[in-house]
Structure formats: structure tokens, C-alpha cells
Design a protein around this nucleic acid. Structure first.
Length: 290
DNA sequence: CAAGTGCCTTTATC
DNA sequence: AGATAAAGGCACT
């Protein structure tokens, strides 16, 4: 199956899958292989043509957010030279519409880890607790369901390389399995309220919550602040903050919750309703040029 | 090659 | 409120 992208609908599959928002897609030759839900699939881009197998066009449109009007979004977030440089270099990078459950566990695992290490952990989790599927010669695994991870022993999770995150994954899986927290419900809630609910989960602080909200729960105003975004703000946007605050931010290793809140609020106020898109472009740009 | 640094942070404690 | 420490282990230099 194929989709033809019109010139007014920029999309870049490689940027989108390489920028660190998702961790389980693998490129073999021209094709990206992955499992979303239960379906193993592959997709490739040749110019303005997207070709895919294993999923239908509706899925592709939805998952890759081809419904987002990127030119319109750019015109809203393009506030200065820095963001403009990022937009022009990585034009076509889109935020994905991921599954909330997988996204949540992924970002609980992602804390204080490098992207390559995160990929390793999630591959281990899926191989050990997911269902084996095949596409061509590729063996791919579905992402384990809440009940499966809730049942997993701590030692098994540790064997996947989760370290201290193992107990957070285990406890969060139990809360989701028991429906103590209904992830689907968060999509309909306002950003602040949904964030508050998410941060009640073990292993979920403001950063993890913002990632889950942005990448899987339709909250495009979420502005996750990680080390790279913090560096980018210090480099390019320091003048929007009191001198004392900038001084503390530069000197300190970790970010306090009030510090996080200040940077996140800045992102939302400065870039507007699509702050999350601005964040992804800044993040990727910063990582590629540091 | 060994050792050091850094990692899309959260939590506990003072 | 704000500072500080601890928490796996892997990848990269």
C-alpha cells in the first residue's frame, strides 16, 4: 500500500523515527520494521511516496500524525533564528501518535539513560515478555501488556537491564492493570490535570509525564525539559529569565521541580499551543550539533 | 585498554 | 523552598 504526500505536507520518515521519541523501530536497508499494537509492519519513504505493509493507510496517517498541518505549526512556533534553523534542517520531522501504555513504560525506563541504552532495555523487555511475530525475515516482538509486566518478577525485570527502574515499571504496571489509572481517559482531560494524574505513578515525574502527554496523549503544548533542552534554553533564551535563576541553573547539576516548571512554562508561553513541536525540533537540533 | 563521564530523572531526605 | 545524594549499568571517549 502507498500514500502520496502532497508538497504542502512535509514528512521525513528517518527524522521522525531517529529523533529519539520512539525506541523500537529498526531500519533494515530502506525499510523500517516495527510493531505497533499487535501488527508487525514495515514502511519506507521514497521522496513523496510512503510504501508500507502490515498496516493500512488510516493507521499510517494516524500514527505519523500526517493530519498535523506542519506548515501551519511552523508558522506558529517559528519565533526566532534558533528554532528556524532547527525547522529548516529537520523539516518533516513529525511527532508520533504512540500507544500510551508503551510510551509510559518507555519513558519510565528512559530516565537518566542514553538513547542506545533505552533501546536495549525495551528490546529486552519485549523479547522476554512480548509475543513473537514475523515480517519477512525479521523477528519482531509486541510490547508486553500491563498484566504481563505486572506479573513479572523483579529479578526478571532487572535481567532486562532496568536497574532501579524495575520496581517503578512493576508498580506502574500493577496500577494500570488494576485500572487505578486509566490511560485512555487522560486524553480527554486538560493538560495540567492529566499531568497531575500521571505524576502520581511511581517513576513518573514532570519530564516523563510531559513525554507521555506529548507523544501519546494529544497534548501538543507539553514541553518536556531534559538536559538538552535545558542547555538550549541557557544558550539561546537566557535573556527571558532573571539573572539569578540562570546562574543557579548553570551551576546546578539537577533541575528542581520549580526550575522544571519555570522552563516548561516558558516553552508553552514563548512557543504557544504547539510548544511540543518546538521542543522536538530544538531537542534534535541540539543533539545533532553539540 | 582502563577509567571517567554522561545519560530525554525520580525519589528520599534534610 | 531549595539543596543534595543515591540509584543500574551501558555506551562512548
Amino acid at each position: 500500500m502507498k500514500i502520496q504526500l502532497s508538497p504542502s505536507r512535509p514528512f521525513n520518515l528517518d527524522f521522525t523515527l531517529c529523533c529519539g521519541q520512539t525506541f523500537r523501530w529498526e531500519k533494515q536497508g530502506d525499510w523500517w520494521y516495527g510493531v505497533v499494537g499487535q501488527a508487525p509492519c514495515k514502511i519506507r519513504q521514497t521522496g513523496k511516496t510512503l510504501a508500507f505493509e502490515g498496516v493500512d493507510a488510516g493507521f499510517v496517517e494516524n500514527y505519523f500524525r500526517l493530519d498535523d498541518d506542519l506548515p501551519e505549526i511552523f508558522s506558529r512556533i517559528n519565533k526566532d533564528r534558533n528554532i528556524e534553523a532547527a525547522i529548516s534542517e529537520f523539516n518533516g520531522l513529525r511527532i508520533l501518535r504512540q500507544e500510551p501504555w508503551e510510551c509510559l513504560i518507555s519513558y519510565i525506563c528512559a530516565t537518566y539513560k542514553s538513547i542506545s541504552a533505552i533501546k536495549g532495555m525495551l528490546a529486552n523487555l519485549s523479547r522476554r515478555f512480548g509475543e513473537e511475530t514475523r515480517k519477512d525475515t525479521q523477528i519482531l516482538y509486541t510490547f508486553p501488556k500491563p498484566a504481563k509486566l505486572a506479573k513479572a518478577g523483579l529479578h526478571e525485570l532487572l535481567a532486562c537491564g532496568l536497574g532501579y527502574r524495575a520496581k517503578y515499571v512493576s508498580e506502574t504496571a500493577k496500577l494500570v492493570r488494576e485500572n487505578t489509572l486509566d490511560l485512555e481517559r487522560l486524553e480527554k482531560m486538560a493538560y495540567a490535570k492529566a499531568k497531575q494524574e500521571l505524576t502520581s505513578l511511581p517513576g513518573v515525574g514532570p519530564k516523563v509525564a510531559d513525554c507521555v502527554l506529548l507523544f501519546s496523549l494529544e497534548k501538543l503544548q507539553a514541553f518536556p525539559v531534559d538536559v538538552w533542552i535545558r542547555r538550549a534554553i541557557l544558550k539561546y533564551y537566557a535573556r527571558y529569565f532573571p539573572k539569578e535563576f540562570v546562574k543557579r541553573l548553570s551551576a546546578q547539576e539537577s533541575l528542581s521541580s520549580s526550575g522544571y516548571e519555570k522552563l516548561g512554562s516558558f516553552g508553552r508561553e514563548y512557543f504557544g499551543d504547539y510548544a511540543g513541536y518546538a521542543q522536538e525540533y530544538l531537542y534534535h537540533h541540539e543533539r545533532m550539533h553539540h
